[in-house]
Design a protein around this nucleic acid. Structure first.
Lengths: 346, 346
DNA sequence: AGCCAATGTGGTTACGTTCCCACACTGGCG
DNA sequence: CGCCAGTGTGGGAACGTAACCACATTGGCT
């Protein structure tokens, strides 16, 4: 039997109440208090009421770290995105957060800057926190592999690093790319430039694949000089796009993400080309400005917020039944035809 | 003396290594292992090396919840914003996250939907997690008060709920509002509409105050019919703006945030008014589209990312010296004059 | 009458870390 | 020669919770 926890120092320090305090107040044991507050196990209505009242009176707040330590699992999901400042990832995070919060979980979010080392560091942190699972937009397969090996469920979102089999939620990028290019081909374009990021991601590769498939289906050969693949943090993208416009004079451009679409748009402006008379433009990932500029931009829209919601839902499902086979959800993009696309000038 | 922690079940379950395992590997006590890994207290170079090697070999990852439980403080800062999906808050969060990560902290972020109840729930959660502090864009004074009473440092960012004295980082909203309206007055406008949100926030009130100050300084009386204050989740904002344009025919509009600026812009379009010939428009908070549309929008720019950085830095400072008086940092907005403002038509 | 399931309860231990304390050994100093 | 500061180590007790187990009391059943 230990003594009451009150330390003897004069000025009443605001001791944060614990289950032991509640138990003392309500005249029960700590065990009963624990059961009443956590809701599992038998507690008489009488004791429950007394304990709840005591909790209210003392302003009891359960200690999450003690709970996590004991249960070996926290309710804080780890989330890794490339760049919180980018609208796409912010929207994704918002979707994830909404679902997690609905279901009593929380989210600790880390922005690697598409840096594999940062990603691994974050993974270690999530392991240290005993996160129940992790949602990641992977830049390299390392973090996912590390986490899976340590037994943490991982959901890859927006793109896949196929190395390890794990849950994923992605857009049908091939189809999206195909839709964009089919639209341009149908308008009569045959010199269609492709602007994409050169990475290992399934997303960028998929959009390019869609570009090729559409060409193949239409029997139009792909001129490889029209396919521009830029590095992730390339500072010279603007010049390269301008160079492509000058050198190859494509009649249409398919820009495979919102950043590249903006850069293409600026390059078109800078060269004072008329949109869509001299060159058509299709973007990927509908963001606010695309609908507001004149002419409005035709774009392959993806359900970004929903992508986040699904990723979170998939993770939570995995937490409930840990053993089933990995699921890959494929969300469908849609083509929004606006005013930036028209038949090529003769 | 307790037995080794290996449970006898056949298939070697991947027991996550603890300090006790490291100690056994390196032939030291748990105490020494703890000192070596946490870096405080005496450890011989010899023992340190052995322990580090053991940690590496076993893939040791410290248990954050055990550490938090013992130290009664985690390294996960709580962040509450109104809406992660809004570019402004996302940018803010990105700034906060960057600084926290640089300094070894992490961020658990919650989006209340400008709902005081959600806010309080989040505050409780952060208390439960033993977060070292909280950064909040407050919608009501309750959450801040609750946290301060329980001894948690709070930094209010973007706006202040003045009730309790606490650290804050805000924009000089009065000055921003004044700059916008002075610009319009200087162009010769006298019928300037003000579009703002009707809240208790210091931010919106400040911008309106700036609007009034500019008028007073110029000796131009304010026509109260031109001052529109909409509720936070008002669905009829578009109609109300349209109504204002029709009824009062202002020659200029000052929209006090990026959402209202967009709605004003749409309303102007919908009425087929010529921008800036028939009506001028000034926004607040420069977001991407404002510079891309034609004509580009004149706007009071605020350093959003920096706002987040400062808030995080202020919180970390407070953690180091908890007793000093509350600090309020005031960041300066700047006016970006573009093409949406011109002298009124005669 | 005996038994068992359902309903409640409390004691005890373990989760993995940190921190306080005790202790051991050195060397230098009064 | 005794003492103390500096260096280094280990034992043990928390931190607050959940979970396991033992146990007590019912009531209804065979």
């Amino acid at each position: 039997m230990t003594m009451a926890p009150e330390p003897g120092n004069g000025h009443a320090l605001p001791h944060t109440p614990t289950l032991a305090d509640l138990a003392r107040e309500a005249g029960t044991s700590r065990s009963t208090a624990s059961r009443a507050l956590s809701g599992r196990g038998y507690v008489s209505p009488d004791a429950r009421v007394r304990l709840m009242a005591a909790a209210e009176r003392l302003g009891y707040v359960p200690n999450a770290s003690a709970r996590t330590l004991k249960q070996r699992r926290s309710n804080v999901v780890g989330v890794i995105v490339s760049d919180l400042g980018n609208q796409f990832y912010a929207q994704l995070a918002a979707g994830i957060e909404q679902v997690l919060r609905e279901r009593g979980y929380h989210m600790v979010i880390v922005g690697d800057n598409s840096d594999a080392t940062e990603e691994l560091t974050a993974a270690r942190t999530f392991l240290a926190m005993h996160a129940p699972g992790v949602i990641i937009t992977p830049d390299a397969p390392d973090a996912t592999g590390f986490l899976l090996r340590r037994g943490l469920p991982v959901v890859e979102v927006d793109r896949r690093m196929s190395e390890h089999p794990c849950d994923a939620v992605v857009i049908d990028n091939v189809r999206g790319g195909r839709m964009a290019v089919e639209h341009l081909l149908a308008l009569g374009h045959t010199r269609i430039a492709h602007l994409g990021v050169h990475t290992e991601f399934t997303s960028d590769a998929g959009r390019l694949e869609g570009y090729r498939q559409a060409h193949a289906a239409a029997g139009v050969p792909v001129d490889e000089r029209l396919v521009l693949r830029v590095a992730l943090h390339d500072e010279t993208v603007a010049e390269r796009i301008t160079g492509l416009l000058a050198r190859e004079s494509p009649t249409a451009i398919f820009a495979a993400n919102n950043i590249l679409a903006m850069q293409a748009w600026r390059a078109i402006r800078a060269r004072a080309l008329s949109l869509p008379d001299e060159v058509s433009l299709v973007g990927f990932d509908d963001v606010q400005w695309m609908e507001m500029v004149t002419p409005a931009i035709t774009v392959v829209d993806q359900p970004t917020f929903e992508l986040g919601r699904r990723a979170a839902a998939l993770l939570l499902r995995r937490l409930e039944e840990p053993v089933s086979a990995p699921t890959v959800e494929l969300l469908q993009p849609s083509l929004l035809v606006r005013a930036s696309t028209a038949p090529p000038r003769l």
